[in-house]
Lab assay of single mutants.
Amino acid sequence: GTEIELESKNGQREHYTATSEDEARKIIEKAVRRGIKRIELRGASEQLIRDMQEIAKQIGLQYRTDGSL
């Protein structure tokens, strides 16, 4: 699965493990709508990382991946 670590603007951290790319995408989209400061992805697919970079650029988000592409 993909591990997703979120940090909201007030510094609250949340951790999710998505079993599918679809689920990961839903978690990320929800977080973005809620207003999130930072997202870290571990074990994400190349496609998901590309999507994440696109989203991050659009809304000026900090993100990090573990680089295991």
Rank of each mutant, 00 (worst) to 15 (best):
G1D: 11
G1R: 13
G1K: 14
T2Y: 12
T2C: 13
E3T: 09
E3Q: 09
E3G: 05
I4T: 00
I4N: 01
I4L: 04
I4P: 00
I4F: 02
I4W: 01
I4V: 04
I4Y: 01
I4H: 01
I4E: 00
E5W: 14
E5M: 15
E5I: 14
L6I: 15
L6C: 07
L6M: 08
E7N: 03
E7K: 05
E7S: 05
E7Q: 09
S8Y: 15
S8I: 12
S8R: 12
K9M: 13
K9S: 12
N10M: 09
N10Q: 05
N10P: 03
N10A: 11
G11T: 01
G11R: 01
G11P: 01
G11V: 01
Q12T: 12
Q12A: 08
Q12Y: 08
Q12K: 12
Q12R: 12
R13H: 13
R13M: 09
R13V: 13
R13N: 05
R13S: 06
E14A: 06
E14I: 12
H15N: 10
H15C: 14
H15G: 03
H15A: 06
H15Q: 09
H15V: 14
Y16P: 00
Y16F: 07
Y16C: 08
T17Q: 08
T17H: 13
T17D: 06
T17W: 15
T17L: 14
A18D: 08
A18G: 04
A18Y: 07
T19D: 12
T19L: 14
T19W: 13
T19Q: 13
S20P: 02
S20G: 05
S20D: 12
S20Q: 03
S20M: 02
E21H: 04
E21A: 06
E21Q: 06
D22S: 09
D22Q: 09
D22R: 08
D22W: 08
D22F: 08
E23Q: 08
E23K: 03
A24G: 02
A24Q: 00
A24R: 00
A24K: 00
A24L: 06
R25G: 01
R25P: 00
R25D: 00
K26L: 12
K26E: 12
K26Q: 13
K26T: 10
K26N: 10
I27F: 11
I27R: 01
I27G: 00
I27Q: 01
I27S: 01
I27K: 01
I27C: 04
I27A: 01
I28S: 00
I28D: 00
I28F: 12
I28V: 05
E29P: 00
K30D: 14
K30M: 14
K30Y: 12
K30E: 14
K30P: 01
K30T: 11
A31P: 00
A31S: 05
A31M: 05
V32N: 00
V32R: 02
V32W: 04
R33I: 11
R33Y: 07
R34K: 11
R34I: 08
R34C: 12
R34L: 08
G35F: 03
G35W: 04
G35D: 05
I36G: 01
I36T: 03
I36V: 12
K37V: 12
K37F: 09
K37M: 11
K37D: 05
R38Q: 05
R38P: 00
R38S: 09
R38L: 06
R38W: 13
I39H: 00
I39P: 00
I39R: 00
I39E: 00
I39G: 00
I39Y: 01
I39D: 00
E40I: 14
E40W: 15
E40R: 12
E40S: 13
L41K: 00
L41M: 10
L41Q: 00
R42T: 10
R42F: 09
R42E: 05
R42L: 04
G43Q: 07
G43F: 09
G43E: 03
G43A: 04
A44T: 02
A44E: 01
A44F: 06
A44M: 03
A44Q: 02
A44N: 02
A44Y: 04
S45K: 02
S45G: 05
S45F: 03
E46G: 07
E46K: 08
E46M: 09
E46H: 09
Q47R: 09
Q47E: 11
L48T: 05
L48M: 06
L48Y: 01
L48K: 00
I49P: 00
I49W: 07
I49C: 10
I49R: 07
R50A: 08
R50D: 04
R50W: 08
R50F: 11
R50M: 07
D51I: 13
D51N: 05
D51P: 00
M52Y: 04
M52A: 07
M52E: 00
M52D: 00
M52Q: 00
Q53L: 10
Q53W: 11
Q53F: 10
E54Q: 12
E54N: 09
E54A: 11
E54C: 09
I55Q: 03
I55C: 11
I55M: 10
I55V: 05
A56L: 13
A56Q: 03
A56R: 04
A56V: 09
A56P: 01
A56G: 06
Q58K: 11
Q58A: 12
Q58H: 08
Q58P: 03
Q58D: 08
I59D: 05
I59A: 15
I59Y: 15
I59F: 15
I59G: 11
I59K: 07
G60V: 04
G60F: 05
Q62L: 14
Q62G: 07
R64C: 15
R64V: 15
R64P: 12
R64S: 15
T65A: 14
T65G: 14
T65I: 12
T65R: 03
T65P: 15
T65K: 06
T65V: 15
D66Y: 02
D66I: 04
D66M: 02
D66V: 06
G67P: 11
G67N: 08
G67E: 12
G67R: 02
S68Y: 10
L69P: 11
L69Q: 07
L69I: 10
